[in-house]
Design a protein around this nucleic acid. Structure first.
Length: 492
DNA sequence: TTGTATT
């Protein structure tokens, strides 16, 4: 059942070079012979001081440690092999960590296996590479305030004096244009630090609004942002408790606003689905509510010019400028220019409608509904905010990928800007979305414009297909259909 | 153009 692998060893563990190893790993493998907790020195095999922990990806979910062991033993004695499982559901996550006793084994395994073979049932080749935790040290830089004309080579030239550059990527928008920033990865932290010291603020590129930004790429922040986005999605538009944003602060508010803006622009992009429009309307309401209730800098209707024409102002007269992205000051300043959801959205979907809706416009009807629905609740909600600062809404971990048969949708022609959270927002009106996933090109970080949404019941999935298949966004129409079952043979 | 996952 195992695929045929390149054979570098005869499959027998080779201990000869491991002089100090006094016990066989199998002696402590009471579970599966592969996992052990480092902590019992008398039975733990030794590993090299510079051993590399490998990340193994594209593992079929029906293979566990004991199935994988033979594949990897080819390259040396295994110190630890752990299939990653969801912490709540125990679900196989399709990947694993692998540490060999010897560093050399890891290198051999990587070169022999990485992207070289495809495990049964997988569409993509196995991944064998150092785990993120191995390379994590701060050696990756974010570079902002570049000239948009500067190429990767230009950036390399700028940074090569400070060390060995392992990666250099210009961040680009959907149109391929530079966003004026880049990631540069050095081989070591010291090199990265040297580059920061020398280059940060050292010069201003032609056309840039401020001096060059060179800082460590902050993955924590990215993670936080993603979490916030998911949270905003999870809280759900039809859940009144979502008003209790307080604990999450300005980020959540900003996200709500952005998503409201997205929904609005989606809704007015062409054919209009009343449900989606209603959803957009409600989100705007909620965002506005939060602004008025919680934001440090209250939104004021400001100058006439800043009130968006069309949809928002006339239809929701009591809420000033719900899509007031301009006036919003609750976000921590993006002093470094590092792209966040905000930046992406800002250059992507236009938050303001291009033209006013007609009276017959379903969006306006939707807004009428909102006024009825949300208007009277406004004061009550106000009170809620001030007195209740309760436990955060329960986070439902988004572990589940697939729902039951008939509940999983494949969506194509998504807007470039849509991520998991936006995808989820778009489909929440039709039911309980248990997962949403937009595919992203690993190299460019750009959406591949397709993704999946899973509901917890087939009726929601069908409703979503009915309403959203063919939904026009910009020049494209969404394709929304049931996900192809995994066993479906592909044509050609 | 059909689930890319990092203890």
């Amino acid at each position: 059942m195992y695929i045929k692998m390149a054979t570098l060893a005869n499959g027998q563990p080779d201990n000869t070079s491991l002089s100090s190893n006094h016990s066989n790993p199998s002696t402590n493998g009471h579970m599966n012979g592969l996992n052990h907790s480092p902590g019992n020195p008398s039975t733990i095999p030794m590993k090299d001081h510079d051993a590399i922990k490998l990340f193994i990806g594209q593992i079929p979910r029906n293979l566990d440690e004991k199935d994988l062991k033979p594949l990897f033993e080819e390259f040396g004695k295994i110190y630890e092999l752990t299939v990653l499982k969801d912490r709540f559901t125990g679900m196989h996550k399709g990947c694993a960590f692998l540490t060999y006793c010897e560093r050399e084994s890891a290198l051999k395994a990587q070169s022999a296996l990485h992207e070289q073979k495809t495990l049964p049932g997988m569409n993509r080749p196995i991944q064998v590479k150092p785990a993120d935790s191995e390379s994590r040290g701060d050696r990756k830089l974010f570079v902002g305030m570049l000239n948009k004309q500067q190429s990767e080579d230009d950036v390399r030239r700028l940074f090569e004096a400070f060390g060995n550059i392992e990666e250099c990527t210009i961040l680009r928008g959907p149109d391929g244009n530079s966003k004026g920033c880049a990631f540069v990865k050095y081989s070591s932290h010291a090199e990265a630090q040297a580059a920061i010291n020398a280059l940060h603020g050292s010069q201003t590129m032609p056309g840039a609004s401020s001096s060059l930004v060179v800082k460590f790429a902050d993955t924590d922040k990215e993670r936080t942002m993603r979490r916030m986005q998911q949270m905003a999605g999870q809280m759900g538009m039809f859940n009144p408790m979502a008003i209790q944003f307080g604990a999450y602060g300005a980020y959540a508010q900003a996200l709500m606003q952005q998503q409201a803006a997205i929904m609005a622009s989606v809704a007015q992009g062409g054919y209009l689905n009343p449900m989606a429009a209603f959803a957009a309307a409600q989100m705007q309401q909620m965002a506005a509510l939060n602004m008025n209730g919680l934001a440090a800098a209250p939104m004021t209707p400001t100058s006439g010019g800043s009130t968006p024409p069309g949809i928002t102002a006339p239809a929701v007269p009591s809420i000033p400028s719900p899509i007031g992205v301009n006036g919003f000051t609750g976000l921590p300043p993006q002093a470094n220019g590092q792209p966040t959801a905000e930046a992406v959205f800002a250059n992507g979907i236009h938050p303001y409608p291009a033209q006013s809706p007609t009276a017959a416009d379903p969006l306006q009807q939707a807004y009428a509904g909102v006024q009825q629905y949300a208007g009277p609740a406004y004061p009550a909600a106000y009170g809620q905010i001030s007195q209740a600062f309760p436990q955060p809404p329960p986070m439902i971990p988004q572990q589940q990928r697939e729902g039951p048969e008939g509940c999983n949708l494949f969506i194509y022609h998504l807007p470039q800007e849509f991520g998991d959270a936006e995808l989820m927002q778009m489909f929440l009106p039709f039911g309980n979305v248990i997962s949403s996933k937009v595919f992203v090109d690993r190299a460019t970080n750009q959406s591949k414009c397709f993704g999946f949404v899973s509901f917890d019941n087939p009726a929601s999935a069908q409703a979503a297909i009915q309403a959203m298949n063919g939904f026009q966004i910009g020049m494209k129409r969404l394709k929304v259909q049931l996900k192809r079952p995994k066993d479906a043979n592909r044509p050609y």
